[in-house]
Write a protein that binds this DNA or RNA. Structure first.
Lengths: 261, 261
DNA sequence: CGCATGATTGAGTCTTTTCAATCGATGTGG
DNA sequence: CCACATCGATTGAAAAGACTCAATCATGCG
């Protein structure tokens, strides 16, 4: 049903560090295109620049690999061995975890410049699935190379920021009402788009109502209803997955003020 | 109202690395007792051993400091400058964050062997408050020393595990019903107690119903009612903050099976 | 001993979910 | 090229779960 299991890819060659060829690696080579230029996504700073636009000296000498993930395919799955981190170069992905009784939840959305795969460092295995919501392109960062290169301080910051972000999501899920959750979700998306040079007020949702609902802890119907209500209130305009934010302050007020008309 | 703001404490002396004495540091010295023996809490592995019971060679040469936090006092607060991580040696703490409209939420509970303060690495400032729920004792780990000592790989694992843990909390808040949340909360606490050599089935809650509710996204009344219901169902016995888990499998079944009588 | 804080329990309300029907868009095969 | 199938989105009505308000009950502390 689903495409072949993801196998983390090693760089074919790195200066002074030739990987011993294994059958898997040889087989995978065809899948992987070597990137000759520097990759801003690998900056590990969640830079918001288009890939390739920033030249990072410390990456000199590192031959890294790129991997394409088609819409619907997984970058990795829960239980997969952890070898590498992934910097999103382009596209849009979600991560999701499954409870043993079958219920699953979207735990995050990832766009260009963000680092994915941090969940695997602790246990040597990934604890969630990461699936592309549109054709995506990631930069593979072998974890052992990261250590060699002394990039840990950067990584610490990325992970710490991820922890702070999760804290925010916990606040959202734990204390906010449905309206507030959705307003916060839209504002967060908008922020992230604008940081990447896209319009802050007009964008295309890459995910379904169900995925949004799963992420913010609501049913898909509630999400749909609230989009309609926001639309009726003149805060946004919705047409399927095309969103315009018409009144940013109004959206913010939904979160800040608990009293409403 | 609250005790003086927390100031992260530096080690007074470290081999070949004398801190320049500043007024603050001198003033704080009285507060800090130097620890001559190795501290298992600093292991950075969230070891579940009582502090001091494990001798870690790589900590040779590091003179580290201890800090006591009385019940109700804060270890640090949101906005405080980040200098150090803290390993809990004994006691029990909570972290909590405040939304701008005043609502606050408990984002975690911390017991011996766990590392606190990771939220500050990314932005140089802490993003949450950490408060002692009982008199506690932490080991201060200056962040810059951590880099010198090459302990980053350990730290990565701790942070990654924290991310995975947060993922679990997000699942709890996002997909579980009230009963399931509370059952999961109790089982998690039990697990953590048993890992520290305490009874898995009988323990004393260090936090109020309100703090539990805040953590799992329920009102304090709902928490109280559910404790009573679990009691009536023979799953646990509750007497104020004293808890006995009478039927672990029953509690697990609350989470796993969505159908109930 | 009395006060303050936290816990329990009840009643009523409100939000959100569930179930269900319909609509719209997209893509495929005849 | 169109009909049909499929998937996602919308909307309504009813039900359930959790919350708020409020009163009462324990416990611990000064």
């Amino acid at each position: 049903m689903l495409p072949a299991r993801t196998i983390a890819i090693q760089p074919a060659v790195a200066r002074g560090f030739a990987m011993p060829p294994t059958p898997q690696r040889t087989a995978l080579k065809a899948n992987v295109s070597k990137v000759a230029t520097h990759c801003a996504a690998c900056n590990l700073r969640e830079v918001c620049l288009p890939c390739g636009s920033q030249d990072l000296g410390r990456f000199d000498g590192l031959v890294y690999t790129r991997r394409r993930v088609k819409r619907g395919e997984t970058l990795y799955r829960a239980g997969d061995a952890f070898d590498s981190l992934y910097a999103v170069r382009s596209g849009f992905l979600k991560s999701s975890a499954v409870l043993k009784d079958g219920r699953d939840q979207v735990t995050g959305f990832h766009m260009s410049g963000e680092i994915v795969g941090l969940d695997g460092i602790g246990g040597g295995k990934h604890s969630a699935d990461v699936t592309a919501l549109e054709d995506s392109d990631v930069c593979v960062i072998p974890y052992h190379r990261l250590e060699e290169l002394g990039l840990q301080p950067e990584l610490h910051k990325v992970m710490s920021r991820a922890l702070v972000h999760d804290q925010g999501v916990m606040m959202l899920l734990g204390t906010m009402r449905a309206e507030e959750r959705l307003a916060a979700f839209l504002l967060n998306l908008s922020q992230r788009f604008v940081a990447r040079g896209y319009s802050p007020s007009e964008f295309h949702l890459r995910m379904t109502r169900e995925e949004i609902g799963s992420y913010v802890g609501l049913s898909l119907e509630t999400v749909s209803r609230l989009f309609s209500r926001f639309h009726a209130d003149g805060l946004i305009s919705v047409q399927q997955r095309h969103i315009c934010i018409l009144d940013v302050e109004g959206l913010r007020a939904v979160i800040d003020q608990q009293e409403r008309s």
